[in-house]
Simulated assay, not measured.
Amino acid sequence: MVRQRRSRPRLAPYLFAAPAIVLYIVFMLIPVGYAIWLSLRAYRLEGGGMLGRRVDVFVGLENYFSVLSDPELIASFGRLAIYGIIAVPLTLGLSLLFALLLDVPAVRAKRFSRTAIFVPYAVPGVVAALLWGFMYLPSTSPFSYITESMGLGGIPFLENPGLFGSLANIAIWGGVGFNMIIIFTSLRGIPAELYESARLDGANEIQIALRVKVPLVMPAVILTTVFSLIGTLQLYGEPMTLKPMTSAISQSWAPLMTIYRDAFITDNLPAAAASSTILALGTVLVSVIVLRLANRKTMEAVK
């Protein structure tokens, strides 16, 4: 009886973690493993003619070389980079700015402002893209109506190069609230004694924000940076939703759109699996690089 009682606590952590582990294996590891296995295969026509049949053969890294040399996929990564250069810094900058403003003691209506900034994040991405799409269309855009009434002509929201800013605006509008909540929560965890000491030394609110608050919330800023980069690499819903509204968005405008085309339109699952694997590895690599650089700067600051 004593041995049984002692063995129960040892099994308890594994029993509590078992459902999460099973879900992770079933919905994460197995699909990833299957995608990697599929990326090493290819379809070949055996027998020729109308009586030929499609067979699945092992081709090694052939799909990866083919994908990496695909000009459409490379161009989609270039467009994604331009989109990220616009969306990520503005999202993080506005999130940090709003969090710092809401943390100022003299600011009123903090709860209302915090909720108002966060509400766009609760709107599904497809719905947000549709809403902004009608704001961008020349026939329904209130912005183009104002400029046309002033004799300036319509605003080309859905044409290059303004398309990048239009897509980035949707991501910024929806992502600022989520990142702001993370940074604001980190700000609320800073001891009030640090602010009092800074005020006693003669620092104003701007100096406190720049020299006390920002350095202390850098871990939260780094975390939101990683989230924003991952979200950028997974861009799909916004350009796919706006695609029927403009000819500037092709079927392979973003990497995930190219993967969708290969998988469900051209029925080239091995190429789609190889592209997905490359995109996943790129996401992990970018996240690791950002975290390494952030940790290095933190260690240098501590020294």
Rank of each mutant, 00 (worst) to 15 (best):
P161L: 08
I172M: 09
G151A: 07
T232P: 02
L233N: 00
I182R: 05
Y145I: 02
F178Q: 13
E238K: 11
Y195Q: 12
G174Q: 15
M257I: 01
G165A: 03
L256C: 00
W253N: 05
A263I: 02
V226R: 11
P142H: 09
A168V: 00
P239W: 04
A220E: 08
W253G: 00
N204A: 07
F143M: 08
T185N: 15
E148C: 08
G162H: 14
V226T: 11
S228T: 12
I155W: 00
S139G: 08
V226I: 15
Q234V: 00
S149M: 15
Y260V: 00
N169L: 15
A248F: 07
W173N: 06
L152Q: 12
F227H: 10
A263Q: 06
I182H: 05
G153C: 07
N169H: 14
P156K: 06
Q234H: 12
P219T: 04
L229A: 13
V212E: 13
E238P: 07
F227A: 06
A171Y: 13
D201C: 05
S139K: 11
G153E: 08
M150N: 02
A254T: 15
Y260D: 11
I259A: 01
P156W: 10
L210A: 14
D201W: 09
T225S: 15
Y195T: 10
A254C: 09
E205L: 12
N179L: 07
V212C: 10
E205Q: 12
S139M: 09
T147C: 11
T232M: 13
V212K: 07
A209F: 01
T140Q: 03
P255S: 07
P244R: 06
P255T: 04
I208H: 04
P142V: 09
A209S: 12
R199L: 01
G202E: 01
D201A: 08
E205P: 01
S252Q: 14
A192Q: 15
I206V: 12
F184T: 00
N169A: 15
L158N: 10
I182T: 02
S250T: 14
A203T: 03
F164I: 05
F164W: 14
A192N: 15
V217N: 08
I222C: 06
V226P: 07
F143L: 13
R188D: 10
Q251V: 09
G162T: 07
G237T: 14
L194P: 03
A248Q: 02
G237Q: 15
F178P: 07
L256N: 07
P191K: 05
R199E: 12
R261N: 11
G151M: 02
G237K: 09
F264T: 06
A248T: 02
T246S: 08
L194M: 12
I155L: 10
T241N: 05
E193L: 01
M180R: 02
F164C: 05
I230L: 13
A192D: 15
A171L: 11
L163Q: 03
S166K: 09
A220S: 14
G177S: 00
M240D: 12
R188V: 01
A220D: 06
S141L: 03
G153H: 09
P161I: 04
T258Q: 14
F143A: 11
E196V: 00
I181S: 04
I222N: 11
L200Q: 12
I181C: 08
F178G: 04
G231A: 02
T246A: 05
V221T: 01
V217W: 09
V212T: 14
M150V: 09
L233Y: 02
